[in-house]
């Protein structure tokens, strides 16, 4: 349908969005790259000088860096496993004929709409607090010693909070996919004598593959940037026990005023995110077309 006039009009209409995003992508990233080669501290801006690879080498030799990478991976993988497995299970359950399905859906989706700082505060104070939290009350009832979650299991605690926030997302998407499953196909398989388990493995799971792929991809993008949950609960501690890469860079930039170092960390984060993206896209790309 593209006639000549509409084509040139279309170009004009696309331009603002493309130009804005192009600027948004190139300018700050270029600046980050530039700063990453500077000795630049906001506390001593006069002492700015060319640093070469120093910032990168500094990061590479800092044990906190490797802790942060490890924590980032554990956080992402932990949340992914919980949300995908839990999401499939819950989706299968609420896809069954039940009374009040609408309300059940609303209850389950709710945590996703809770902003990260509030989610973190709720878990920190209402649920996991060592003296006033529900877990502590529960432990008392059972005659056990209450656990100081954020001191003893900081990363696990954050995984629990983040998984709680993202479980609804995974459930909702997997449920949507499940509901588009062809009923006749299932009945045909039943006629062919397939058991419930083999129907799940051979029909349901392959049908959901695309949705699972999408859940993993999108959650990974967001999970690499987890920040507010850490800021509000553990501040990355104790030590570096719950510091992820995002938080480490934030600390360098905002608490240590080390612009050069934070910029180098930013570049490393970009490289990592791209590695993950390429790896994921390739591993699951065939499910996306």
């Amino acid at each position: 349908m593209a006639t000549r006039q509409t084509a040139s009009l279309a170009r004009l209409m696309r331009a603002p969005a493309i130009i804005l995003l192009l600027i948004w992508m190139i300018v700050p990233l270029g600046m980050t790259l530039y700063y990453s080669f500077l000795n630049y501290n906001l506390l001593n801006p006069a002492g700015t000088s060319w640093a070469g690879w120093f910032n990168y080498r500094y990061f590479y030799t800092d044990p906190a860096f490797f802790d942060a990478i490890r924590n980032t991976l554990v956080l992402v993988l932990g949340v992914l496993v919980i949300t995908v497995v839990g999401g499939i299970a819950i989706a299968l359950l609420i896809d069954k004929p039940i009374w009040g399905q609408g309300i059940v859906r609303i209850l389950i989706i709710s945590p996703f709409f809770v902003m990260p700082p509030v989610a973190a505060l709720i878990w920190k104070n209402m649920i996991m607090h060592p003296s006033y939290g529900v877990f502590a009350d529960l432990a008392q009832v059972l005659g056990m010693q209450p656990v100081d979650w954020f001191a003893q299991f900081p990363l696990t605690s954050i995984i629990v909070i983040v998984a709680w926030q993202w479980l609804p997302f995974a459930t909702l998407i997997l449920l949507t996919s499940l509901q588009s499953l062809d009923g006749e196909q299932m009945e045909a398989a039943e006629m062919d004598g397939a058991s419930a388990l083999s129907r799940f493995i051979h029909l349901t799971l392959p049908h959901m593959a695309r949705a699972i792929t999408v859940v993993i991809l999108i959650q990974t993008i967001f999970l690499l940037g987890i920040y507010a949950e850490i800021l509000v609960t553990t501040n990355g501690g104790p030590g570096n026990a719950s510091t992820n890469l995002t938080y480490l860079i934030y600390r360098a930039a905002r608490l240590n005023f080390d612009i050069g170092g934070a910029a180098a960390g930013g570049i490393i984060a970009v490289i990592l995110a791209n590695l993950v993206a390429i790896f994921l896209m390739r591993a699951v790309g065939k499910n996306l077309d």
Binding site: V27, P28, Y35, L224, A253, A263, V270, A273
Partner: peptide
């Protein structure tokens, strides 16, 4: 893909 760029990477600038 611009959405995949970590926010923290451009925090400094």
């Amino acid at each position: 893909s611009t959405k995949m760029m970590p926010a923290v990477a451009v925090l400094v600038p």
